[in-house]
Design a protein around this nucleic acid. Structure first.
Lengths: 206, 206
DNA sequence: TTTTGAGTTAAACAAACGTTTAATTTTGTG
DNA sequence: CACAAAATTAAACGTTTGTTTAACTCAAAA
């Protein structure tokens, strides 16, 4: 699907506002105003509001299966690959954090208005690849077998998103250095913490 | 603050609907309808919609500092205490998961409408207590010192909430047994996973 | 019995919402 | 240039929103 400059402009503003104020908390009018276009243009291009969101999500969540397979196809050992995979995952969710925030909140609603099929299919594919990698490491004897594999990714992603969603309060509670940018913190301290946590978990024997 | 039966009834319905559809996605009318009262009664009791939410949060997030200190005051070793603390935290967030979902969503908005002072103060107090406990364990030589303490709670809470918010997709991807109730899964498999993860992390040395 | 005040109601309010209309301007093509 | 299609606009549409009004009920107190 190709989008013209104006449509991309609408996507950018919509992404920011949906992430900042929620889907229901964002009006078509406010998107139009900030994108500096007429209200009717949004309906003209995307139809219903929910179709705008659906197309936005598909536009932004491009496939990252390839990057994953690139790492796995190398001849490095399991721990190096593990580090690279975790680094890749965090880099990706951080880059697209606003889109993921929208997804988290809309997807967790009981009465869903939005279609998530394309996103879910990609997710499933990637999760299966990672599951195979862990099992391979277990059979090779480098990863502990006493692990609930299905809960490793929730730990990786959960740590990142919990920190993101509570950033302001953690900054206050722990008096994190405000001179360190969020990007540096995520790709430095946080990524290291998560890598060490998963490594520890995968080598831990009671 | 004391609330009569009708006010509590409004709280119960509001909590469910806010968690299910978001604050903006829930109308005063839908709350009134499901609580089987007249619309005007909500304004009569709580004033503005945001005041209803504020009072709901204060009503539901009672202090759990005492429970935390009860555990720490025992004479058990650090690892037993650690297990008990994590179990307590998960039990608590799971019991109040709907309230926490509302908080996560509303608190992460850039333009906040709601006051979170009471909630944040409690949080800060509890986090400080836990931080002291970990440092105590490090000085006693039982916990590794190569740990970013501030990121341990995001890992615990993040794992739980990431799983909760993506429950449906994880059920699909990993084909979790649908006969096991969410409560049993959380207090069994998930709690064990998180305890093992944090224990591993706190004893891991490169 | 009268009075008082809290509880409760249907109705109304203006504002904001998503969406559509119909007219106009711009653009590209023969 | 002429013409058709696409882009753009202001205005209006009918709903739904949060909130308020004013009238009413009813139990308890005087």
């Amino acid at each position: 699907m190709d989008y013209n400059q104006k449509q991309v402009q609408i996507f950018e503003v919509a992404e920011r506002l949906f992430a900042e104020n929620g889907y229901d908390g964002t009006s078509i009018r406010s998107i139009a105003k900030q994108a500096d276009i007429n209200i009717a243009m949004i309906s003209y291009y995307f139809g219903l509001k929910e179709k705008l969101l659906k197309q936005l999500l598909n536009f932004k969540t491009a496939d990252f299966t390839q990057e994953l397979e690139d790492i796995l196809s190398t001849s490095q050992d399991h721990f190096v690959k593990l580090e690279q995979i975790i680094t890749l995952i965090i880099r990706r969710v951080h880059k697209n954090r606003r889109v993921y925030k929208i997804i988290h909140f809309e997807y967790s609603k009981t009465r869903q208005q939005i279609e998530f099929d394309a996103y879910l299919n990609n997710k499933k594919k990637n999760y299966t690849i990672i599951e195979c990698f862990i099992k391979d490491g277990q059979q090779a004897g480098v990863f502990s077998k006493n692990v609930t594999i299905q809960l490793l990714l929730p730990t990786v992603l959960g740590t990142y998103f919990n920190l993101l969603y509570n950033k302001k309060s953690y900054e206050d509670i722990y008096q994190l250095d405000p001179n360190i940018s969020i990007d540096d913190f995520v790709h430095g301290t946080l990524t290291k913490h998560i890598i060490r946590t998963i490594k520890a978990k995968l080598t831990y024997e009671d």
